[in-house]
Each structure stands twice: as C-alpha cells, then as structure tokens.
C-alpha cells in the first residue's frame, strides 16, 4: 500500500511542556488507523501537531513526502487534511448550510455532490439545514464536524474522539457512518471507546506518555486481553 502520512520521532511542545516525546507512525492510503492510549497520553496533541496547531521541536512529519513541519495550519489543511477536533469545532453562530459552505474550497459539481453525499449519510443535518448550529445536539454537531471534513476531496481525515459524550445509540449510528466513510477515505482516528475503535480501525498505534509504544492489526489487539490491559487500562 502507498504511504500517505509518515511521522518519525515527532516531538512537540506547548509552552514549557514537551507533550509528544517521540511518536512514530505511518498511515497508508485507504487505511483506517486508530490511535489508542490512556487519558493524557498525547493523542489529541498528536492530531493538533499534524494540523500545525501545536509547535514541533524535532522529528519528521510528512504527507505524501511533503513536510508539514513549520507550515501555517491553513496550508496544511490545503494539502488535503480534514480535521474534526474533540470539541467538534462547529461554528455556533453559523447555520449548518454555512458551516458546510465555509469549508468548501470551491463550489464545483464534485463538491456539491460530496455535500449531497454527507447530507444523505447524516439525514439529521438535511432536516436542520437552515438552522443555527448552536441548536444541534452533541451527536448532530459531531455529524456536522465529520461532514465538513468530507466536503473537500481530502486525502485523509483526522477525527478526535468522536464518541466522547455521546449516547450509545448515537455512537452506534456514528460507527455505521464511519464504516461507510472509510470505504472512500483514509482515516486517522483517536478513540477511547474500544468498541468503536474496533468497528472502524484496521490497524492501531498505542501512545503512552507521548511515545508510540505498540502497533499492530486491530484483530490482534482485540484477541489479546493482556495487551489491552497493559496499555489501555480498563476498557
């Protein structure tokens, strides 16, 4: 498989604190890769570092061989990276329509087809299309965040804990949607909900204290209770 995102010994910091202390991973085109780890392991910081929202100290970070280090966030996004942050990043004072429109780099036929695709994928958004986003529930906001990352022809989408704070029935719907999305898109998913991670991911990386400590295929992790217990604690 062709390598898409390649990270080697990545070290990043916020203020005086070094958060990532040597993350190494690779995501191939068409894959769904899950990042697992305990709270505070550095998973969210990893996605923010990829997006250029956290400063890098050393290491390499490249998309299709082009370095992303030191570049402004908007040029990183333009390389073809969609980002769904932990808190959804939805603009409350904009309608759903505007939230989708602001993300469009162009309004050509293909983009409008992708818009129709995400509205079919998440019918809730179609129903509330003209409503302000602040009126949406947590699950609907997550759907909007993911839809926004799919509206352009992105090479990869980074999704940070989509199940956080959502009811089990909503998580189930989300899992189905992500399984559908992974047929067409490369996904790098941070997730604490092991069931969702297993439903979506093909491979995994485990991060602990800012370092990559394990990697492998999801099936192997699912069948190895000792490994789960060692790296992920109570799941």
């Amino acid at each position: 498989m062709k390598s898409l995102l390649k990270i080697e010994d990545l070290v990043s910091y916020i203020g005086l604190y070094t958060i990532l202390q040597g993350v190494t991973m690779e995501v191939n085109k068409g894959e769904a890769v899950v990042i697992l780890g305990r709270n505070g392991a550095g998973k969210t910081t990893l996605l923010r570092t990829i997006m250029g929202l956290v400063n890098t100290r050393s290491g390499t970070l490249a998309l299709e061989g082009r370095s992303l280090i030191g570049r402004p966030t908007y040029t990183i996004a333009k390389e073809g990276i969609g980002y769904c942050p932990e808190d959804y990043g939805v603009f409350d004072e904009l309608t759903i329509e505007e939230n989708l429109k602001i993300a469009m780099w162009k309004e050509d036929k293909e983009t409008l087809q992708r818009r129709d695709y995400v509205l079919d994928l998440f019918p809730d958004l179609k129903v509330a299309y003209k409503r302000l986003s602040k009126t949406l529930s947590g699950g609907q906001r997550q759907m909007l965040s993911i839809s926004r990352s799919l509206i352009n022809d992105n090479k990869i989408i980074l999704i940070d804990e989509p199940s956080k704070g959502l009811a089990p029935v909503v998580i189930e719907r989300l899992a189905h949607a992500l399984q559908e999305i992974r047929k067409h898109t490369t996904i790098l998913l941070v997730e604490q909900n092991f069931a969702l991670a297993c439903a979506v991911g093909e491979r995994y990386y485990i991060i602990d204290e800012g370092r990559t400590v394990d990697e492998g295929r999801m099936e192997a992790l699912m069948s190895d209770k000792a490994l789960q217990s060692r790296h992920l604690g109570a799941i």
Partner: peptide, 13 residues
C-alpha cells in the same frame, strides 16, 4: 466564524 474559532477557520484551509 473567526470571531468564535479562529483556529478552526485555519484548520479548514
């Protein structure tokens, strides 16, 4: 959008 989330506006390119 920028009044609310300038970081997220950038993350949209």
């Amino acid at each position: 959008a920028g009044v609310q989330r300038p970081d997220m506006v950038q993350a949209l390119g």
